[in-house]
Amino acid sequence: MKRAQKINPLEAGMHGLFFLCGFVAVAFVLVITVYLVISGLPAIREIGPVNFLLGTTWDSKNKTNPQYGILPFILTSIYGTAGAIVVGVPIGFLTAVFLAKVAPPKVAAVIRPAVDLLAGIPSVVYGMVGMVVLLPAIRELFQLRAGDTLLAAILVLAVMILPSIISVSETALRSVPREYEEASLALGATEIETYFRVTVPAAKSGVAAAVVLGVGRAIGEAMAIMMVAGNAPNMPGLFKSVKFLTTAVASEMSYASDGTLHKMALFSIGLVLFIFIMMINVVLNAILKGEKE
């Protein structure tokens, strides 16, 4: 009995070690938050939150009177994400309906791994194919001087969010109990009526999660759209060269010199993006939690 009461040092040590590992994730989040806040706030304070967030001109190259207004980036990120959702969600969702319900099993078994492959393709590859295929096409089609536009970025983003929209919606559709569908069919509804009036409403929180996930992906993507969006700090327009929050950071990181207001403003953009992402995560968690209940 006496021995059992004695704490084994190895056991206690391992317990502590595992606890530390568990705590590392929390520590990382704290590190990220602290770094982004500490490095992001000074520039906002110096420029002024209103000028920074609502200023419509970003002119970092102007040596005498640089302007750091990020409203164009914020709006571009919002428009671009919304555009990608508008294009990508219906296609992805209906493809998910196809894979989960309509497709012959053998066909679905071929398409599904291909969609997984699409999900794994590095974003620079999407950006490159966009550069080579999409940009000339847009330039020709709309008679523009250059194809690097918000439209190109939206299309690339739409393709990039497609795989996650498809797989998350498909999982949600598949988890709807078969009994619901049988009841609907037994009432004389056709299969399609059943899928869209019973299965889809029953899976709506899963589909909503897919959309929010797509929003998160789209708003956070940098490299692919940096290759197709033109990267001029214009207010957004479908056929204008634009800069997103992400690409503003990505495209100017390497040439802004340390310690300048310019570099600090880039960190502030990172902070704004971080806040956007956290809001999306909160929404996503709320949806997923609601689904469990």
Partner: peptide, 8 residues
């Protein structure tokens, strides 16, 4: 968290 923020 998107990778560009990790990069920062």
């Amino acid at each position: 968290i998107p990778s560009i923020l990790y990069a920062l």
